[in-house]
């Protein structure tokens, strides 16, 4: 399957509808030859035709496997709304501000994911878009340790209703959750299971420390059985102090978490991943 490099070569609009198949076939042949001269392409085995599993006896109905080079191509959206101010806009390496954005009189806008107009190509990072989605649909883990859990449930139910801000569905399984709200005193015996919960959560995940006990040990700081702050055993994004904080306090903390996710948009891969327990703990 031959695909054009859409950035360099815009779709040819002047082509006659009656162009013969042989012309098109020649063009494809030429491209294939050009590719074949590249050493990497020469070494690669010819594309293998995979059959659809439900049509074993019909090779023409078989599905074609996508090669790695196809996946890397940009998504091309057919442009039906505007024409570029300069025909060489994309081919001539000109900045986006003098092309379609000038046409639509939105020069103050940059050509990024925030732009919601019709674009031929959306040049963005998947993480930018995904983080926006993540921030507005936080799924906390329903794991209460002690007193704060009651206020966490109060924040989720009728009077305070966290659902308004897009963070309702309290999941009972760590494998479906985004946010671990550690609500209540963390004891040394519970520290192991809690770290295991944290490590079971899939990777875009955040941690909110709710209550004084989880922030610093709180009123049990001097106890022999209490971990003085959960940041000793796992990374924490937002601290919500209070003994216990009001439900409004927790909601404010979760809104701060949304803000934090949006500000760090696209920087998720920079964050430390993997085992969160430092050596020597």
């Amino acid at each position: 399957m031959a695909m054009r490099d859409a950035r360099r070569e815009p779709p040819d609009r002047d082509r006659q509808p009656g162009a013969t198949d042989s012309q098109h076939g020649q063009q494809v042949e030429a491209e294939r030859d050009r590719n074949a001269t590249l050493p990497a392409e020469r070494d690669r085995a010819p594309e293998r035709i995979q059959m659809a599993s439900d049509q074993p006896s019909h090779p023409e109905g078989a599905l074609q496997a996508a090669s790695p080079s196809d996946v890397a191509e940009p998504i091309v959206v057919e442009n039906t709304l505007w024409t570029a101010a300069s025909p060489n806009a994309y081919g001539g390496n000109q900045p986006a501000s003098i092309t379609h954005l000038r046409e639509l009189d939105v020069e103050d806008k940059s050509d990024n994911a925030r732009w919601s107009g019709a674009l031929e190509i959306i040049p963005t990072k998947a993480d930018y878009v995904l983080d926006l989605i993540r921030a507005n649909s936080l799924w906390p883990l329903l794991s209460g340790l002690a007193c704060c859990a009651i206020e966490m449930m109060s924040a989720a139910t009728s009077r305070n209703d966290m659902d308004r801000f897009g963070m309702f569905p309290f999941r009972a399984s760590p494998r479906q959750a985004d946010v671990l709200i550690v609500a209540g005193t963390l004891t040394t015996k519970m520290a192991g299971p809690l770290v295991r919960l944290w490590e079971q959560m899939p990777e875009p995940k955040w941690c909110v420390a709710m209550g004084d006990c989880t922030c610093s040990g709180g009123r049990y700081k001097r106890s022999y059985a209490v971990v003085e702050g959960i940041d000793r055993i796992m990374p924490v994004d937002v601290y919500v102090p209070g003994c216990p904080p009001r439900p409004e306090g927790l909601i404010y903390g979760m809104l701060k978490l949304q803000q934090l996710i949006i500000e760090r948009r696209g920087h998720w891969p920079d964050r430390q991943v993997g085992p969160s327990v430092p050596a020597g703990v």
């Binding site: 340790l145 002690a146 005193t185 004891t187 015996k189 299971p193 106890s223 059985a225």
Partner: peptide, 14 residues
């Protein structure tokens, strides 16, 4: 048991 043992009785003595 003991996952929420916070040593309350001992703290009260102190």
């Amino acid at each position: 048991l003991g996952y929420l043992h916070r040593g309350v009785e001992k703290i009260c003595e102190n």
